[in-house]
């Protein structure tokens, strides 16, 4: 496991091979929230346009979105 950290976030990164293939395990160490990314998802991130990454960094798009929009609403890329 490796830690990727700066003053704004701290995330642990490890390769998880418990399944039938390998995947990346990311954990936000400040909250314990975990996301797994498989190879195709990682490749897609590598190829994603810069505007997509900028949109991802908008706090209102995920963790701090307004409650009335609903917890399951996919919001990235729209207002």
């Amino acid at each position: 496991m490796e830690i990727v950290a700066n003053e704004f976030a701290t995330v642990s990164v490890s390769v998880d091979d418990r399944g039938n293939g390998t995947r990346l395990r990311l954990e936000d160490l400040r909250t314990g929230t975990v996301r797994h990314l498989d190879a195709l998802e990682l490749e897609s991130i590598v190829w994603a346009p810069e505007s997509w990454m900028r949109a991802l960094l908008d706090p209102s798009q995920h963790r701090w979105r307004d409650a009335e929009r609903g917890p399951d609403q996919e919001s990235l890329g729209e207002s």
Partner: peptide
């Protein structure tokens, strides 16, 4: 860091100064 997040209310900026977003934008 490619982006900076203010610790007070979470406003987030690119390292060029652009505002990328803020919590609860409604």
């Amino acid at each position: 860091a490619g982006s900076f997040r203010c610790p007070y209310h979470g406003w987030t900026f690119a390292n060029t100064g652009d505002l990328l977003g803020f919590p609860f934008n409604q």
